[in-house]
Design a protein around this nucleic acid. Sequence first.
DNA 1: ATGAAAGCGCTAACAA
DNA 2: TTGTTAGCGCTTTCAT
Lengths: 334, 334
Amino acid sequence: MTATIYDVAREAGVSMATVSRVLNDTAVVKEETKKRVLEAIAKLSYRPNAVARGLASKRTKTIGVIVPDVSAGFMAELVRGIEDVARMYNYHIILCNSDGMVQKEIDLVGTMWEKQVDGIIFMSPRLRSEHIDTFEEAQLPIVLCRTDDPERRIPCVNIDNRQAARDVVDFLSAKGRTAIGFVGAAGNESAITSERKEGYIAAMNDHGYEPIFIDTAKEDYNSALLAVRTHFAIERCDALLGANDEMAVAALHACYDAGLKVPQDMMVVGFDNTKLTQMTRPELTTVAQPMYDYGAVAMRFLTKLLRDEPVSTYTVILPHQIIERTSTTTHVKR
Amino acid sequence: MTATIYDVAREAGVSMATVSRVLNDTAVVKEETKKRVLEAIAKLSYRPNAVARGLASKRTKTIGVIVPDVSAGFMAELVRGIEDVARMYNYHIILCNSDGMVQKEIDLVGTMWEKQVDGIIFMSPRLRSEHIDTFEEAQLPIVLCRTDDPERRIPCVNIDNRQAARDVVDFLSAKGRTAIGFVGAAGNESAITSERKEGYIAAMNDHGYEPIFIDTAKEDYNSALLAVRTHFAIERCDALLGANDEMAVAALHACYDAGLKVPQDMMVVGFDNTKLTQMTRPELTTVAQPMYDYGAVAMRFLTKLLRDEPVSTYTVILPHQIIERTSTTTHVKR
DNA sequence: ATGAAAGCGCTAACAA
DNA sequence: TTGTTAGCGCTTTCAT
């Protein structure tokens, strides 16, 4: 396993160029010669050194994946989607966590350049102009994933979060609910939450309902639990929309703790269709985002960029869908 | 950003060897020369090419991480632990999913060799002799993580799953429970589940209780839900121990669906202390495994191997701990 | 303290 | 169809 291409060439009685040719199928090699080369490769347990290959060819078959935190929510599913498609196209991924910090994200792009990755899939809670500058400097194919570029300069795969939030309000309105609260972090929320909130506000206005904000300190379970518990002093909602599933589950549990019945007294809806939604009682109605597909589609998109395949648009919008579960069913069976 | 070390050398009026020296701090360079080099680097926005560096030095500062599935359970936390420590020591990780399939795992080790990684962190549901052979062939430093090598030949970080299961049985016994069921996949279970089951059986025998097995088809939520529902026809348990949290939550919900009260009628305990445990009602008592630490410690261990630092033992056992929540509290407050 | 030069293992013209 | 030969951008002896 430590033989070089030169050893193989000698063993097979050919030049290293020929070995390279059969290895990469980059030119026609006589059937018999090819056979000899293959035998030599097997005999020596030869494996090509990808680093040398990368240096010579200037392509490493490696792509950089920059995420805020793999261990958060369903990021791992997304990464899995990336990795599956990457491998399909014979790429490997270098995974980095940025914690959503701008400076780290920027440094990481530089490091990825040093590693000579062929491209980058980039996720961030909110895209700044510094990011764009860095991308341009790096001169690398980049696809944004679940990260909105308001000015649509960078290739990007996303869902329509505004429309999704509108859909939920319509859905709850159709069930007779009018006092729908939005549970989300105020101020320092992610771009995605902002969009959902915008859609929510627009829809509430369209229906003539007054928006109700249950503001949380952060975008996590405990902050949401606390916020909803506090809010219950007011008791004027008949439905809650969480900025994501984790926060919606917190809302669900705050209701449980307060003795409120879901869905009778309060309907609850989340976002993202994480595994969580099926692991609560009642189960959580949610807006399904194709987590795995996010990654898979983004990576597929990147391969197109890398192969100079034509792409019709730089912004891919994935479909979303409301998945109804028992946290909103009007007629409870049990 | 596309200048080479040679450009920097010329700009600074020194040889490339000197640039390399200041870059790597590998020999003493006169303060003034160093300054000139640093200025040239800044002026040209020079960044070293890690691939060329890897080829020349035979060290890539990259380690391969082979996991069954990042998106499963808490694997992502573990990977995060690896990545954090890796970066601390200036390494990057190439992440690969094997789906726990032996052939894929073996192929992956080969590919990691091709990529010239400096070491591998390896996770698998069950270690076979084929794995060991591959490891030896690859001649790479390897650390097993949450993966038992029964013969203790490969460095490994783990917890004592047998003891953990014993502890749970003791814990439930102290609460007066005697008909404790074990919810786990039979036959094709992971090595970890096997160990937990062994510990469970041993403890049950020690107490003079009869072991009760609720066998599931697979190690997941739905299989466990189905199995526990079926088992309830018999109705002879007063406590259930899930092979992991996901299965324990399924047991919890099967109880809910059957109208059984937890913890009064049935206590439920899980394994792993995933986020899930706090997102159920009642909240789930569980055995905490340090997910993040698994990865962090394994990576730290690997750095020791890579730097030839002395290691006292090849098997690191991490501590476990029962976290009591409301699924087993005798006096329920509400 | 610095420079010259030989690789590292491969790809990719260019020849033949 | 196959071989020769430059590199790719860096590290690392070995001199000086």
